[in-house]
Design a protein around this nucleic acid. Structure first.
Lengths: 225, 225
DNA sequence: CCAAAAGTGTTCCGTCTACACCCATGG
DNA sequence: CCATGGGTGTAGACGGAACACTTTTGG
């Protein structure tokens, strides 16, 4: 039976994590300098090889957890990248995953330890291999999904102001949104709850803090911005 | 340098083709009985292993061409499937691809020779391994994309009637569309050209035949049904 | 002459968009 | 007291959905 498999050759399979964050009203990407050959010193996504005892998804979660210490992150497969010479060393097929994390949850000591940086998405340098393509695909997926799935909350703290939320949408969609229209729409969404708490950090008057109610969303998972 | 790779293990990678067709106003899927172990005799998508000298996309095109003889088909990656035990024999990661073909272009002798059949999508049996999941994902991708990309033409002959076109949309989206609203929208789309030809096969009165003008679409690739 | 599919417009309603001013507060 | 960001409503435009009858012709 294994004869059937043996006729064919195996390849290395890796996962690469496209980690988005949100800071100073800008989308950021977590990238670092490659510390191994081939491509040593080039900017690169953070990745790792898939092991025998883990699924692709598990591999992606492991790689992200290794890097950030974060466990329950939003993660979605972007796609498999398999050009013959995409890796300059050997034939490696890579499966890209897109993660959305709250920058504040990421211990900055750990970040420095791994030598990765938050880079502004619109100042993204040339990356190793086909990583720029992966990022492009991730962004276009993100832009499409943000309209029908409550993704933005993954980029924010548990409590956030409506202005922050609006800035996330603007950063992802790439242009401005009318404040009144935005807030009108948000008000109609049950699972975005206003709390009694006030955030005084960003303004003198203070802004109401909101919260994403996961349970309410699970009850009625319809979303349309 | 290769030391770096050697620390990790390789896996088999295959591609599986989800081939959609359209016949008798229904979406059909091309599936066959597996002729090898493991899973001999089970219904299955048609697939093959990725070779050293071809990219993932090339592998998918090769597998589809082997099966159907068709070269310039619409094809899109659906995603990578990598559960540890998804293949009952060995660890195999599979990348699923979705193809849309015109049933009439597929030589029926060839089809029989390969022992594959067109099966109504809503009568789809239990398939081998995780192939049902692949199909589900392909359909949901298709439903989303059909609204913003001119995909339906791939399932039809070069010349088609508006009624046929409408049936394709109904089959994919899964419910009825108002004829007048549909035709109103189609009329606004420049790259769907009315020809002087009349199709008399489906009605006594005859229906105008239309054509998808690829060049016009390439000039202005905006589409919204 | 009739069955069967092709073809054709209008009205209504809900949704999206544009738009400008007052409020509260810390410094 | 003023600079700064927070918060609010309305009117007009637009697009999508509902809806029924006439035309053509092969048998």
């Amino acid at each position: 039976m294994t004869q059937y498999y043996r006729e064919h050759s195996k390849v290395w399979v890796s996962v690469d994590c496209i980690v988005f964050g949100f800071e100073n009203n800008h989308l950021k990407l977590l990238i670092g300098r490659r510390q191994m050959d081939p491509g040593r010193g080039e900017w690169s996504l953070y990745g790792g090889f898939v092991r025998d005892d883990e699924s692709l998804d598990d591999a992606a979660y492991r790689v992200l957890r290794d890097l950030t210490g974060l466990k329950k992150t939003y993660m979605k497969q972007v796609g498999a990248f398999g050009a013959i010479d995409r890796d300059p060393g050997e034939r490696v097929i890579s499966v890209a995953y897109c993660a959305l994390i709250n920058v504040a949850d990421y211990d900055d000591k750990l970040r420095q330890q791994y030598g990765v940086e938050w880079v502004d998405l619109d100042k993204l340098p040339k990356l190793y291999s086909d990583h720029n393509q992966m990022v492009s695909k991730a962004i276009s997926l993100l832009r499409r999904r943000i309209k029908t799935e409550p993704l933005s909350f993954n980029l924010l703290p548990d409590l956030f102001t409506l202005t922050q939320l609006q800035h996330v949408y603007e950063a992802i969609l790439g242009d401005g949104i009318d404040k009144r229209n935005f807030r009108k729409r948000i008000k109609q969404i049950d699972f975005i709850e206003k709390t009694e708490l006030i955030d005084k950090k960003t303004s003198k008057r203070g802004a109401a803090l909101y919260r994403f109610n996961k349970k309410l969303y699970a009850d009625d998972p319809t979303f349309k911005l």
